[in-house]
Computed example of a mutant assay.
Amino acid sequence: MEYYEDLTVGDTTSFGTYDVTRDEIVSFAEQYDPQPFHTDADAAAASMFGGLVASGWHTAAMTMRLLVDNYLADSGAMGALGVDELRWPTPVEPGDVLSVRTEILDKDVWDDDRGRVASEITTTNDDGAVVLSMVAQVLWRRRG
């Protein structure tokens, strides 16, 4: 278990791979973000993207999956207060393989039981292009 006190500003961690499929892009979009460039290959080909792309919200969800599976599940993280500076600079396409890097930017004591940790989260595809960046504000359990 990693606690608030174990985290140091400047710490970085890289992990995970997530294989993005066409079927998952379409399925997510049909349910949550049914814009044609996410759901229809022909319409997507005629869009500014030139092909089917994942919703930014889907990219955030895939990022969260990588974070939970590889970083947060066995930690003292207690949930997020929110995210700042959320960006999707490069679209995610079918066949992309995503990975995540975190860097602790700032931390402070929240109360006797918790600390707030600001972490920059960067998700990249297998070409190294950034597909998501954000600063997560997460509460972490304090030791004792």
Results as ranks from 00 to 15, higher is better:
98 L>V: 09
144 G>K: 04
117 V>D: 00
53 V>E: 06
80 A>H: 03
112 D>T: 03
62 M>S: 12
83 V>F: 14
76 G>R: 02
71 Y>F: 11
96 D>W: 10
43 A>N: 03
87 R>T: 12
125 N>S: 03
97 V>M: 03
144 G>Y: 08
112 D>M: 00
86 L>M: 15
89 P>K: 08
105 L>Q: 11
30 E>M: 14
57 W>A: 13
101 R>I: 06
56 G>T: 05
104 I>H: 10
29 A>W: 05
96 D>S: 12
123 T>K: 00
106 D>A: 15
77 A>Q: 12
110 W>E: 14
117 V>Q: 01
72 L>I: 12
33 D>V: 11
58 H>T: 07
80 A>N: 12
74 D>F: 07
27 S>A: 15
108 D>H: 08
63 T>H: 07
54 A>Q: 02
119 S>K: 14
70 N>D: 13
138 V>Y: 07
121 I>S: 00
122 T>R: 14
62 M>Q: 12
141 R>Q: 14
108 D>E: 13
121 I>L: 10
27 S>C: 03
40 D>Q: 09
88 W>F: 15
104 I>N: 00
66 L>F: 13
46 A>S: 12
76 G>W: 01
127 D>K: 13
56 G>R: 02
136 A>Q: 13
40 D>K: 05
113 D>P: 13
43 A>G: 04
88 W>D: 10
96 D>G: 04
63 T>K: 15
141 R>T: 08
89 P>S: 09
112 D>H: 06
30 E>F: 12
99 S>E: 00
103 E>G: 11
130 V>D: 05
92 V>R: 06
82 G>R: 01
130 V>L: 01
102 T>R: 15
131 V>Y: 06
93 E>F: 09
141 R>D: 00
33 D>Q: 05
135 V>N: 13
30 E>Y: 04
125 N>A: 03
125 N>E: 03
139 L>H: 04
27 S>M: 08
91 P>V: 05
94 P>F: 05
132 L>F: 07
108 D>Y: 06
90 T>G: 07
56 G>V: 02
142 R>C: 09
61 A>E: 06
133 S>C: 10
61 A>M: 01
55 S>L: 01
92 V>Q: 00
73 A>N: 04
89 P>M: 07
52 L>R: 06
81 L>P: 09
74 D>W: 01
138 V>C: 15
93 E>M: 15
76 G>N: 05
118 A>I: 03
82 G>Y: 07
58 H>A: 08
74 D>L: 08
43 A>K: 14
105 L>I: 06
118 A>H: 06
111 D>P: 13
116 R>T: 10
125 N>R: 01
62 M>N: 02
90 T>L: 05
143 R>Y: 11
94 P>T: 05
100 V>D: 00
36 P>C: 03
84 D>G: 09
94 P>H: 04
89 P>Q: 11
98 L>F: 12
104 I>G: 00
143 R>I: 11
50 G>R: 10
46 A>F: 01
87 R>L: 01
36 P>Y: 13
118 A>M: 08
32 Y>V: 12
114 R>F: 11
118 A>E: 12
59 T>M: 04
56 G>K: 02
60 A>C: 15
36 P>N: 10
95 G>Q: 02
144 G>D: 09
32 Y>K: 10
140 W>Y: 10
42 D>I: 14
94 P>G: 05
127 D>R: 12
100 V>S: 06
60 A>F: 14
63 T>Q: 11
123 T>H: 02
